[in-house]
Amino acid sequence: MTDCLLCHRDNFQQPTLWQLFNFQPIEPTLLCQTCLNAIDAIPADQACSGCGRLCSKSVCDDCLRWQEPQDFKNRAMFQYNALLRQFMSQYKFYGDYQLRKVFQTKLKREVAQFKADFVVPIPINPATQQQRGFNQVAGLLEQVETVDGLKTLHRDKQQPQSAKNRQQRMQTQQPFTLNLDPEKFNKKRVLIVDDIYTTGRTIRHAAMLFQSAGATEVMGLTLAHG
């Protein structure tokens, strides 16, 4: 791979001395240095513990308003800036499935820290699956063992979340149902993974289901917050 997957410019990588003398295989980065530099990571210790946004307080005002589900904590890895927007649009809306690999290793490391019993990707409805050909969250989690613990209630969506405003998003009804026997999640730690945390509505709907199934802890992990 010689071109950056996002900006399509030449992606020549100068190996560092450390890499040379390490005698380990060099993992090719799929993005060029310019694009990589444009990614804004959110350090875990500077983030809101509720939603994962970059925040000076330990819990942001938005999360104080959230009553349901109680004690839900989400970790967001990156800020949803211009580069992440471009990434998501090319990956999800144009369907460039190769891009799933860009964050796989980082995501795998992040997931491992949660020590969850089950990792559940947010599902997409069958109509989108048919049209897009892949579930974008499952693609990001390719290197992780996951459980399809959720399914969508409806075959297709009237309106995608991204086309709604905040108020409309907040009024969204529960879109999911458990895909497996609720017993399975009883007294277990469940990690729900999604691509973007915007208002928190989607992932919190999913979390409610596992909490009522008796999970001891339900956590969230999203690639981006914005």
């Binding site: 144009y94 369907g95 460039d96 499935y97 190769q98 050909g133 892949f134 579930n135 499952a138």
Partner: peptide, 22 residues
């Protein structure tokens, strides 16, 4: 193999801006 979708189809990563070819 670099452009295989989970269900076994392939897509073109070069001209997707005008609608993805699968």
């Amino acid at each position: 193999q670099t452009v295989q979708l989970p269900e076994g189809d392939y897509y073109c990563p070069h001209c997707f801006q005008l609608g993805r070819v699968t």
